[in-house]
Simulated scan of single mutants.
Amino acid sequence: MPELPEVETTRRGIAPHCEGRTIQRVTVHNRSLRWPIPRELEEHLTGATIRSVERRAKYLLLKVDQGSAIVHLGMSGSLRVITDNTPLLPHDHVELELDSGIRLRYNDPRRFGCWLWSDTPEQHPLLASLGPEPLAPEFTGAMLFRLSRGKQTPVKSFIMDNHVVVGVGNIYANEALFKAGIHPKRKAGRISLDRYNRLVDAIRETLSAAILMGGTTLRDFVNSDGKPGYFAQSLLVYGRAALPCEECGMPLKEIRMNQRSTVYCGHCQR
């Protein structure tokens, strides 16, 4: 599933081609995504100028004067910038034709993504209750420390809760906890302020590096120009169960938490 770095990579890839451009035509080839694509999407977007392409958590916002299209890539979705006569591919569900001649195509084989419309996107139910962005100034160790007091939840589940902080998906939670030296099953309420400060630094470092490398391609993700991300080559623990720890050489361990793979070093992470 595309996580925050993959979505941010997509945003950066399509924004220069879309911002300031007028949408001449919206073509929906298949409305049956996670939620049916509303017909008001075409009504509001056709003839509108894209003022900005923004990201909130794992959602992309194509903002026009009247509101915003809210786009989620689901488990297998991608947005591609088409500059030639490339024919439609199977599972190309939505296409925006811009006044520059460029087309923006949304492909989603599993159809778990979404295209929705909102006059006030920040107040939309999908976005209104989300926590802070992990790269924003308000995301701090002190904030995590305060929210975690009294919680018995494992710290990995705690930092993956979108009400606490958005965009720390499974891959990046594994990596950040390893860098911070924190065991993924340690209770969130038993972690000190100093260790939360280290964890925030590790989350920022991990996500920033992944964005620079174009995300992590494990199965389906391709970015807006069709090229894969390369952060998978830099993973320290995720997908490396039983291999030697990069720090101490001990075999990495794997457990299941909330039905997700969790890899850690039993020696380095406490």
Rank of each mutant, 00 (worst) to 15 (best):
E247H: 13
L79A: 11
G131I: 11
G214K: 07
I14C: 04
R56Q: 10
T46F: 09
K58W: 03
Q123F: 12
V64F: 06
F231T: 02
S100E: 13
H124M: 07
L4C: 04
W117C: 14
H44F: 08
L4F: 10
R260F: 08
R240C: 09
S32N: 15
Q66G: 12
P16Y: 10
F139C: 04
V28Y: 07
H124I: 11
R12L: 14
G101V: 06
H183G: 01
G20Y: 08
N197A: 14
Y230K: 11
L212W: 07
F145G: 03
V64I: 14
V166E: 03
G150W: 08
F112H: 02
K227Y: 13
A176D: 10
V263W: 03
T206S: 02
R198Y: 09
T217V: 04
V28G: 05
Q233V: 05
E95G: 11
I211G: 00
R25S: 14
A136P: 04
F221Y: 15
G77E: 07
H72Q: 01
H17K: 06
P154A: 12
R195Y: 10
D84T: 15
T120L: 11
Y59E: 08
P134A: 07
I255T: 09
V64G: 04
R146T: 11
A57S: 09
H93K: 06
H183T: 03
A242C: 01
A69R: 02
T9G: 10
V200I: 08
M213Y: 11
R103F: 07
H267W: 00
V81Q: 04
D84K: 06
R270S: 14
R39V: 04
C18D: 01
K63L: 15
L98R: 05
I203Y: 11
K253D: 00
R56P: 06
Q259C: 10
M75C: 02
G67R: 06
Y196Q: 12
T27Y: 13
L135I: 07
L236Y: 05
L73G: 04
A210S: 05
V53P: 09
S68G: 15
L193M: 08
P125D: 12
C265A: 00
R186L: 14
E95R: 14
L235V: 05
L98P: 08
V166F: 03
S192Y: 06
P87A: 06
D65S: 14
I82V: 15
G20A: 04
G77R: 05
G189R: 04
W115D: 03
L207E: 05
A241C: 03
S68N: 06
S148Q: 00
R80C: 10
A173F: 13
E246F: 05
G266C: 04
A202C: 09
S148C: 00
P132H: 10
D161Q: 02
I159S: 05
Q66D: 13
D201M: 14
G239P: 01
S100N: 14
S208F: 13
K227I: 09
L96N: 05
S192N: 00
H44M: 13
R25V: 13
E175K: 01
N197H: 15
L73K: 03
N223I: 01
R31F: 11
M160C: 03
P184F: 05
P154D: 11
G169F: 13
I14P: 03
D220T: 08
L144N: 00
H44G: 02
R80H: 13
V94R: 06
D161L: 03
G181I: 05
